[in-house]
Simulated assay, not measured.
Amino acid sequence: MLVHGSRLASSQWAPQLPLLAPHVDVVTPDLPGHGVRAGERFTLDRAVEVVQEAVALSRAPTVVVGHSLGGYVVLAHAARHAEGLAGVVLAGCTATPTGPGAALYRGVAALTERVGPRRMTRVNDRVLRRLYPAEVIEPVIAGGYYFDGTPDAWREVMTHCRPAMLHGVDCPVLFLHGRWDQFRLGIRAFRRACPHAEEVVVRGASHLVNLDQPERFARAVLDFVERDAG
Results as ranks from 00 to 15, higher is better:
G66C: 10
H67Y: 10
H67D: 11
H67R: 04
S68N: 09
S68Q: 06
S68L: 00
S68C: 01
S68I: 05
L69C: 04
L69E: 06
G70M: 00
G70Y: 01
G70H: 00
G71Q: 12
G71R: 05
Y72Q: 06
Y72G: 05
V73P: 11
V73F: 02
V74M: 08
V74L: 04
L75F: 01
A76H: 03
H77D: 15
H77S: 10
A78F: 12
A79C: 14
A79L: 06
R80V: 06
R80Y: 13
R80H: 13
H81S: 07
H81L: 08
H81Q: 09
H81K: 08
H81G: 11
H81V: 00
A82H: 15
A82K: 11
E83F: 03
E83K: 13
E83M: 07
G84L: 09
G84K: 07
L85H: 14
L85A: 08
G87R: 03
V88T: 13
V89I: 12
V89W: 06
L90S: 06
L90I: 15
A91H: 02
A91T: 13
A91K: 03
G92S: 11
G92M: 08
T94I: 07
A95S: 13
T96L: 00
T96M: 01
T96Y: 02
P97M: 02
T98W: 09
T98Y: 08
G99Q: 07
G99Y: 05
P100R: 00
P100L: 01
P100A: 01
P100Y: 02
G101W: 08
A102R: 14
A102C: 08
A103W: 04
L104W: 14
Y105M: 08
Y105R: 09
Y105D: 00
R106F: 01
R106S: 05
G107D: 12
G107L: 00
V108M: 04
V108N: 04
V108G: 02
A109F: 05
A109C: 07
A109E: 10
A110Y: 06
L111A: 13
T112F: 04
T112A: 10
E113V: 15
E113I: 09
E113A: 15
G116I: 04
P117E: 08
P117S: 07
R118F: 00
R118T: 15
R118A: 15
R118H: 14
R119G: 09
R119F: 03
M120P: 10
M120E: 11
M120F: 04
T121H: 11
R122S: 12
V123S: 05
V123R: 13
N124G: 12
N124A: 06
D125T: 15
D125L: 10
D125I: 12
R126H: 15
